[in-house]
Design a protein around this nucleic acid. Sequence first.
DNA 1: ACCGTTGTGAACATGAGTGTTCACCTGCTG
DNA 2: CAGCAGGTGAACACTCATGTTCACAACGGT
Lengths: 179, 179
Amino acid sequence: MSVHLLQTATSVLLKDPTASLADVARAAGVGRTTLHKRYPTRTALVRAVANDALDLIDSVARQVDFGSDDAIEDLITRLVALGPRVEFLLRFPGLERDEEVRTRIEAMDQPVLDLITRLQGTKLRRDLPAWWILHTLYAGLFNAWEAISYGRLAPLDAPRFVLTTVFEGVGNAGSTDRA
Amino acid sequence: MSVHLLQTATSVLLKDPTASLADVARAAGVGRTTLHKRYPTRTALVRAVANDALDLIDSVARQVDFGSDDAIEDLITRLVALGPRVEFLLRFPGLERDEEVRTRIEAMDQPVLDLITRLQGTKLRRDLPAWWILHTLYAGLFNAWEAISYGRLAPLDAPRFVLTTVFEGVGNAGSTDRA
DNA sequence: ACCGTTGTGAACATGAGTGTTCACCTGCTG
DNA sequence: CAGCAGGTGAACACTCATGTTCACAACGGT
C-alpha cells in the first residue's frame, strides 16, 4: 500500500495544489500521522513526488537510444504514456522555485536539447532555437495529458496527435490534402 | 492608482498563486483594508482579475474580422501582445472550477472554434479535431509568454514564432530547407 | 466651513493547515 | 511469550490568511 502513496499524492495535488495534507492522507487511505512520519513537512512531500516523477522519466529516458534518428518520436511516445506522474513537474505551482528540483529538471533537459540540436537541419528546422522546440514538445505533451484527463482524447491516439502536431503543425501545408 | 490594482494583482498572483491578500495590497501600494473594500473576498478578487482579462480579450477580439482568412493570424498576433494579463486565465490554479469564469471562457472559445472549423480544409488540417487545434494555439501562446517573461524571447519575435510553429510545426518538412 | 467619499492603520475573532507528541493497537520475529 | 517495528487516532500549540470593524486622516465639491 505504501508504494501507491506518492502516486496518490501526485493526483490529489495535481487536481488541487492547495489540498491539505489531511486530504492527501485520506485519499491514500493512510493516517495523517503516518504521512507525516514519512514526509515530515509539506515541501518534503512535494519534493518526493517531484523526485518520483523525475525517477520515472529517468527510467524511460534510459530506454531510448539517443543516437537514433527516431529518438524524439520514441521519447515522446513513451512520455505521453507516463501521464499525470510527469505532468506534475510542469504544472505544480511554485515547483520551479525549488532549487533542488529545478536543477534536476535542467539536468534532464540537457540531453534532449543536445538531441534536438543534433537533429536540426535534418529532421528539425534550423531556424528555431533548440529551447523553443523543446518547449513546443512539452506543450504538446501537456495538451495531450489534459485532453486525456478530460476524456476528450483516447490515450492510444495521444502519441500520434502530439507527434503530427508538433512536427507538421496544424496548417494545411501547401495544397496536399492530408485528410 | 486604482486602475493599476487589478494589473498588479494579476502579476503578483501569477508569480505566486498562494500570495496573501496583504502581499497583493502591498505590491499595489494600497492598504489591505482598501483592497478588502473593493473585493470583499479572495475569490472576488481572483474573479475580478479573470474578468478583467476576459474584458481585455473581448476588446481585442472585437477588432478582428472573423470573416477574413487571416483571422487566426491576426487574432494570435494580438493575443501575444496581451501577455500576463491573459496568461492568468490559462495558468491560475483552480480557476477552471469557478463556474462563472469557466462559462465566460467557453463562450469566448466558441467563435474561435467556429473559425477553426470553417478554415479546416483550406488553411487548416481536416484530420484533427477543432478543439485540439484550439488548444495547440493556446499552447503556443503560453510558450511565448513564458519565454518572454524569462527574457529568452523578444516580444516582437513572439508572434512569428508562435504562428510558424503552430502552423508548420518544428519538423523540417520534406526536403525543402526552411532555414 | 461642512460633509460625503475614499483610503488608512490598528485591532480582533475565527478558522484552517501544520508540525509535534503520545498512548494504543497490530503483526511479525526472535 | 517477549519485544520490536510500523501504523493509527486524538490531542495540542502555533502560525497565518482571512474577514470584519472602527476611528481617524485627506480630499473635493457644495
